[in-house]
Amino acid sequence: MKTSVCLLALVAVVAAEVYFTEEFNDDSWEQRWVQSKHKEDYGEFKLSAGKYFGVESRDQGIKTSQDAKFYSRAAKFDKEFSNKGKSVVIQYTVKHEQGIDCGGGYVKVMRSDADLADFHGETPYNVMFGPDICGSTRRVHVILNYKGKNHLIKKEINCKLDELTHLYTLILNSDNTYDVKIDGKSVQSGSIEEDWDLLPAKKIKDPDAKKPEDWDEREYIDDAEDTKPEDWEKPEHIPDPDAKKPEDWDDEMDGEWEPPMIDNPEYKGDWKPKQIKNPAYKGKWIHPEIENPEYTPDDELYLYENWGAIGFDLWQVKSGTIFDNVIVTDSIQQAEDHAAETFDKLKVDEEEKKAAEDAIARAAQEEALKKQEAEEAEQQDEEEAAKEEEEGHDEL
C-alpha cells in the first residue's frame, strides 16, 4: 500500500509542468517579449531592481519608465497547453515603487495564436489577473473569458497599496474552484460558478405566478376603534403671552403691533390612530421560482483548451511599477518553490533595507527636532536677556 502511494506521488511530481517562467535576469528578456505596434507611442519597460533589493540580477524586473503612457509587451510560451483535468497557476510579483495613484498592475494570459505584435486592450484573452489602482478603484481583477465574453469576479478583492514587492497568485482547479493568494496567503477562494456570472441563473421567477389580489402584506394596521381625543387639536404656535408692546411702538408708523409667536407647549402634533396586529396579515409574498430552462450546467468552466502567451497591457499615470518572477504552471508546489527562490528572498532583503532606511530617516527627524528645540530655546534666552536689559535701562 505504501509503495502504491509513493508511486502515485512520484507520478504527480513527474507530471507537473512549468509552461512559462520569466525572471528578467538580463537584457535577453527583450528578445522574448514582443513590443506591440498597435500604437506608436507606447511607454518603455526598463530593467530595474528598484530602490530595495538583495541580489540585483535576481531581484530586477521590468519597470514602467514614462508617465501617462500605455504599455504593451507580451511573450509566447515554449509550447501551448490545455489545462483539462488539472490546475493552472498564474503567478508573478508587482512592486508599485512610485506610490501609484492610477495604473494597472495585471497580466493577461492568452491563446497561443494571439498576435503579440498587435497586442492591445481588445485582444482576446483567457484570463486577466492582478491589481488595478485608480482613485477609489483599488482591487485585484480576476476576469475569466467564457464563450467569447469577459466576466469580472463578483467578489471584491483588495490589493496592496504600499511600495514594496507583492506576490500575486491565481489558481484555477479542475473541480471548478479557484484560489487567489497575495504573498502566499489566500485572500479569496470558492466556486467559479457561484462567484462569476458565466452561466444563466439556475432558477428564475415563475412568469406565470402573480400575487393574489387579496394577499395582505401589512403586518400592522390602524386600530379602527381608536379615536382622536377632543382636546387633541392645539395650534403648533401661539402668541407669546409674556410679550409686551414696546413703549416706542408707533401704530401709525409701524403698523398694528402683534406679539411674537412661540411654540405651543400643549401642541401634540398630528394625531394618528394606534397600530394593531393585522388579523389578515399573510406575510411578505415571495415570488415562486422555477428551474431556468436556459440553464445548462458546465463541469468545465475552469477549462481553456489553449494557453500559449502572457502579456502586460496597461495604462499608468505615474510610472515606476516593477514586474518580475512570472510563472505559469499546473503545479501549486512548483509555484510555491519558485516563490521561495525569488519573492521570499527578495522580501527579506527588501524589508531589512527599508527598515534600515526608515530608522535613518527617524534618527534624522529626531536630530532635526532637537536642533529646532535648541534654536528655539536659544532664541527665547536671547529675548529674555534683551528684556531684562531693557528693564534695567528703564530703572536708570
Rank of each mutant, 00 (worst) to 15 (best):
residue 105 G to V: 11
residue 95 K to H: 11
residue 71 Y to I: 03
residue 228 K to I: 15
residue 303 L to K: 04
residue 135 G to A: 04
residue 212 P to T: 12
residue 220 Y to Q: 14
residue 186 S to Q: 09
residue 265 P to I: 10
residue 199 L to C: 02
residue 79 K to F: 09
residue 276 I to T: 02
residue 351 E to T: 13
residue 174 S to Q: 15
residue 260 P to F: 06
residue 300 E to N: 11
residue 7 L to G: 05
residue 313 D to W: 03
residue 349 D to V: 02
residue 51 K to V: 00
residue 36 S to L: 09
residue 315 W to Q: 11
residue 87 S to D: 15
residue 366 E to N: 05
residue 336 E to T: 07
residue 152 L to Y: 12
residue 153 I to T: 07
residue 267 Y to A: 07
residue 234 K to L: 06
residue 376 E to T: 09
residue 380 Q to A: 15
residue 228 K to L: 15
residue 290 I to R: 11
residue 133 I to C: 05
residue 272 K to V: 06
residue 269 G to D: 01
residue 351 E to C: 04
residue 168 Y to V: 07
residue 324 D to I: 00
residue 315 W to H: 14
residue 66 Q to D: 11
residue 84 K to Q: 13
residue 350 E to P: 04
residue 266 E to Q: 08
residue 128 M to K: 14
residue 120 H to Y: 11
residue 208 D to R: 06
residue 124 P to M: 01
residue 271 W to A: 00
residue 11 V to Y: 14
residue 322 I to M: 04
residue 80 E to D: 15
residue 194 E to A: 15
residue 321 T to M: 14
residue 169 T to Q: 10
residue 206 D to I: 03
residue 50 G to K: 07
residue 375 E to G: 05
residue 139 R to Y: 13
residue 114 A to P: 01
residue 203 K to M: 06
residue 172 L to R: 13
residue 368 A to P: 03
residue 75 A to C: 08
residue 176 N to I: 13
residue 200 P to G: 09
residue 26 D to I: 03
residue 262 I to A: 01
residue 68 A to Q: 11
residue 163 E to C: 03
residue 53 F to Y: 12
residue 180 V to T: 06
residue 184 G to C: 03
residue 222 D to I: 06
residue 335 A to F: 08
residue 104 G to T: 02
residue 119 F to S: 06
residue 335 A to T: 06
residue 267 Y to H: 14
residue 19 Y to F: 11
residue 89 V to W: 01
residue 72 S to D: 07
residue 326 V to W: 15
residue 348 V to P: 02
residue 77 F to V: 01
residue 46 K to N: 13
residue 179 D to V: 15
residue 24 F to Q: 00
residue 83 N to I: 00
residue 170 L to M: 10
residue 369 L to C: 04
residue 125 Y to N: 05
residue 215 W to S: 13
residue 245 K to V: 00
residue 14 V to W: 11
residue 203 K to I: 01
residue 27 D to M: 08
residue 94 V to N: 05
residue 231 D to Q: 02
residue 189 S to N: 13
residue 9 A to H: 07
residue 375 E to Q: 12
residue 187 V to M: 12
residue 338 H to F: 13
residue 12 A to E: 06
residue 158 N to I: 13
residue 291 E to G: 13
residue 320 G to M: 05
residue 80 E to T: 14
residue 390 E to W: 09
residue 13 V to H: 14
residue 344 D to N: 08
residue 123 T to Y: 05
residue 81 F to Q: 04
residue 91 Q to W: 06
residue 292 N to T: 07
residue 262 I to P: 01
residue 165 T to N: 14
residue 364 A to D: 14
residue 113 D to H: 01
residue 210 K to D: 00
residue 99 G to Q: 08
residue 86 K to M: 11
residue 69 K to R: 11
residue 141 H to Y: 15
residue 292 N to D: 03
residue 73 R to M: 12
residue 107 V to G: 10
residue 289 E to D: 09
residue 30 E to F: 02
residue 198 L to D: 02
residue 166 H to T: 00
residue 167 L to F: 01
residue 341 E to S: 13
residue 69 K to H: 13
residue 223 D to Y: 13
residue 11 V to W: 15
residue 131 P to E: 00
residue 217 E to Q: 10
residue 177 T to G: 04
residue 93 T to A: 05
residue 226 D to R: 12
residue 122 E to W: 07
residue 262 I to H: 04
residue 275 Q to G: 05
